[in-house]
């Protein structure tokens, strides 16, 4: 965990955002303390605190004095919206660029999208499609 080349606090924040986004961490749920986080993942507590404070500023977490950190109400929605907004630029555009490099015609791509959509429709009747993207924040910004 967290051994990528980016600053560790960035990786920790990404990790927590992904957990909130996937529902692994629910709103109003308490997250690990920075100390627990630091000892669990062998990370400097100050580094963990930097990530947590960044998420508080973003509105993903909030502090309850003397108790700890919790996932903010509405954090899931906020993250969904942010990731959806970035989806086209960060995920779709590079995929289409790649298709162009490989000489795959746009019609082939569109056919694939249509086929998946019709296969997925019955199962995904009530949920919105973009939320299905499993790891939308994988791409660094």
């Amino acid at each position: 965990m967290f051994d990528g080349p980016e600053p560790i606090y960035v990786q920790i924040a990404d990790h927590l955002r992904a957990q909130v986004l996937s529902g692994e961490l629910r709103e109003e749920e308490q997250v690990m303390s920075t100390t627990q986080f630091a000892t669990t993942f062998r990370i400097n507590p100050a580094t963990a605190a930097k990530a947590f404070n960044g998420l508080v500023d973003e509105g993903v977490l909030y502090k309850r004095r003397g108790v700890g950190m919790f996932v903010a109400p509405g954090a899931h929605e906020t993250l969904l919206a942010a990731n959806r907004a970035a989806y086209v630029a960060e995920v779709l555009d590079p995929a289409l660029d790649r298709a162009e490099v490989l000489g795959i015609p746009l019609s082939t791509v569109l056919d694939h999208v249509r086929r998946r959509a019709s296969a997925a429709r019955p199962a995904a009747a009530q949920t919105s499609a973009p939320a299905q993207d499993p790891r939308p924040d994988e791409v660094t910004s």
């Binding site: 100390t35 630091a38 000892t39 062998r42 400097n44 507590p45």
Partner: peptide
């Protein structure tokens, strides 16, 4: 070594 790092971090936090 890993056990040492864990002990160090836990005691440093406290």
């Amino acid at each position: 070594r890993y056990a040492f790092y864990d002990l160090l971090l836990a005691d440093y936090a406290e």
